[in-house]
């Protein structure tokens, strides 16, 4: 049994180790190791396409994770006090958001937005003052942020709600009994108690958005995110440079997740 488990760990980590190993190869070939070198890391960091894609990914991940944390937390807290069909409807939508495959979310967002833009753009051109270039809505960063926020917002609602359900209502009831206005109770009692869940939700949302390929593939328009760059490069053949990028991305996700775990664990112990 022990040996079996060891095999499974080898299975889990060999591919990751191979990518990391080949990223240090000095040679041009991606399949033969020709001496240790860090040059592909330098090459990747000097590549303007990579840096552009990275900047896009970071920006989109940061904005959508922030929006999702705020909207998701508000919704989770508001839902606590709601009953009846409205609540059931909202729960159903959250459930759908998590269950529907990413690829269907991607195509649905693509055709819905393109159709809406086709209607709105001529109308915008019509009402725009003469002589000035009318704005044209296209797929790009904003549409990608909107799509990622939708999905990650559902995740934040689930995480924060789990935390809220574990809280003792006695605390906020005591606060209300002592005549604290509701906003004050929320700010001084509820918010500090759910803060770890919000932060964990933010970090998970950030990681999801940063790693997402399939939704971005449809919704990003002419923009390139890092996963899209990696995917299209692999299509042309694996290079040591891609391995270097992959290793850096894996390390970054890892650090974020360790932080999220530490925060959640510490708050659960309290």
């Amino acid at each position: 049994m022990r040996i079996y488990s060891l095999f499974v760990y080898v299975f889990l980590y060999t591919p990751i180790a191979i990518i990391a190993l080949f990223s240090f190869s000095a040679g041009r070939s991606a399949s033969q190791f020709e001496g240790f070198s860090l040059k592909w890391y330098g090459r990747a960091l000097d590549n303007p396409f990579v840096m552009d894609a990275l900047a896009n990914s970071l920006f989109v991940a940061f904005v959508s994770a922030t929006l999702a944390s705020i909207l998701g937390t508000l919704a989770a807290v508001g839902l606590q006090g709601m009953r009846g069909p409205a609540r059931a409807f909202f729960d159903a939508i959250i459930y759908i958001a998590v269950m529907i495959p990413g690829i269907v979310i991607g195509i649905a967002t693509l055709i819905a937005l393109v159709t809406v833009f086709d209607v709105v753009n001529p109308w915008l051109a019509n009402i725009w003052p003469e002589g000035r270039e009318p704005p044209a809505l296209t797929m790009g960063r904003p549409s990608l942020i909107a799509a990622h926020t939708m999905f990650t917002l559902a995740l934040v609602v689930l995480i924060v709600r789990a935390r809220l359900q574990g809280l003792e209502s006695a605390l906020s009831e005591a606060s209300a009994d002592l005549y604290a206005p509701p906003m004050r109770t929320f700010r001084l009692i509820t918010l500090p108690l759910i803060a770890p869940a919000i932060l964990a939700g933010f970090l998970l949302s950030f990681t999801f958005s940063f790693d997402d390929f399939i939704i971005a593939f449809f919704v990003a328009g002419s923009e390139t995110t890092l996963p899209i760059y990696i995917f299209s490069s692999i299509r042309r053949g694996v290079t040591p440079e891609i391995n270097a990028i992959g290793t850096m991305v894996m390390l970054a996700s890892l650090v974020l997740l360790v932080i999220a775990q530490l925060i959640l664990r510490r708050s659960n112990k309290r």
């Binding site: 939508i93 958001a97 909107a146 917002l153």
Partner: peptide, 17 residues
């Protein structure tokens, strides 16, 4: 409190589907 998230989900999930 629920409205912003609700509207977002309606526009970016229910409408596209």
């Amino acid at each position: 409190m629920v409205a912003p998230a609700g509207v977002w989900l309606l526009v970016m999930l229910v409408l596209p589907l």
